[in-house]
């Protein structure tokens, strides 16, 4: 096929309003436009199903019909850029944030961010956590702790929201979703922590202060500078409990001490 035909096909596959690209031929006597319409329908519905698989809670929040319309609009704006289906939907959260019909559900975009982070966490590389003995050994080198940099499990992720996305997500995992949702206040800001254990991703709400500390460590800040920012911003909160989260979830995989490689 010529580059021009490929480009016009790619364009026409995204939008059912576009005509069948010129230059398509059938080996058997059939109408190319009709065949193309069938092919386009299969492409579109498989991509809509893929989004529904990756974003099940978003779909539950808006209902199947709205979700199909949302997914179709998203497909026109953001066609897949990778042949790996699991990666489709990287821009879905940002698309929702700019999609006026979804504005009445203000937490939908953050829920998409959370569900996307879930799938990325499920597929993140394996890692080996430091043992508690290795962590204990750090205490004997306390003078180096200030400039130590922590490397965390690649499956660990944080999603900070002005809404209770972790609790809403949790309620949708229960058998009786309606009953579970009754206990959730959607307007409560939450920081969702994602960790993976035994190939299952768990999502929990953690204090915002702990989330900020962990984010600084992910961004490469030394323990001392992350702790200084933490204590300046959250004098009432406990550094030990924030670090305790990382230890409890076995998320620390390496500690780079100054002067060591």
């Amino acid at each position: 096929m010529s580059d021009g035909l490929i480009a016009s096909m790619a364009q026409a596959l995204r939008d059912p309003a576009q005509p069948c690209p010129a230059g398509l031929r059938e080996s058997c006597p059939a109408d190319p436009a009709q065949r193309f319409a069938i092919y386009r329908n299969n492409v579109q519905s498989s991509l809509i199903d893929a989004l529904a698989d990756t974003f099940p809670v978003c779909r539950a929040l808006v209902g199947a019909d709205f979700f199909i319309g949302l997914a179709r609009a998203h497909l026109q704006a953001c066609p897949p850029r990778s042949p790996v289906l699991m990666e489709y939907g990287a821009e879905f959260a940002d698309f929702i944030a700019g999609y006026p019909p979804a504005a009445s559900l203000p937490y939908l975009a953050d829920m998409a961010r959370l569900e996307r982070a879930y799938v990325m966490s499920a597929h993140a590389a394996d890692s080996v956590p430091l043992t508690s003995r290795q962590l204990q050994d750090l205490l004997s080198r306390a003078d180096l702790l200030h400039d130590a940099r922590f490397q965390l499990d690649p499956a660990l992720a944080l999603v900070r929201s002005d809404y209770a996305v972790a609790s809403l997500w949790g309620a949708h995992q229960e058998d009786d979703v309606t009953a579970a949702l009754a206990g959730v206040r959607p307007g409560q800001p939450e920081t969702a922590l994602l960790v993976r254990s035994d190939l299952v991703v768990a999502i929990t709400a953690v204090p915002q202060s702990s989330g900020e500390l962990i984010q600084h460590l992910i961004d490469g800040a030394s323990l001392g500078s992350a702790a200084s920012i933490f204590q300046a911003r959250h004098p009432d909160f406990d550094l030990a409990s924030a670090l305790g989260l990382l230890i409890a979830y076995q998320s620390i995989i390496h500690v780079q001490l100054p002067g060591a490689n």
Binding site: S132, L135, Q136, L138, L139, A142, D143, L145, H146, L223, G224, A227, D238, L239, A240, S241, L243, G244, L246, I247, A248
Partner: peptide, 14 residues
């Protein structure tokens, strides 16, 4: 440094 070691030690014992 002392408070970092204390925080890490507390986190580990917890």
């Amino acid at each position: 440094t002392a408070s970092l070691a204390l925080a890490l030690g507390t986190a580990l014992s917890l």
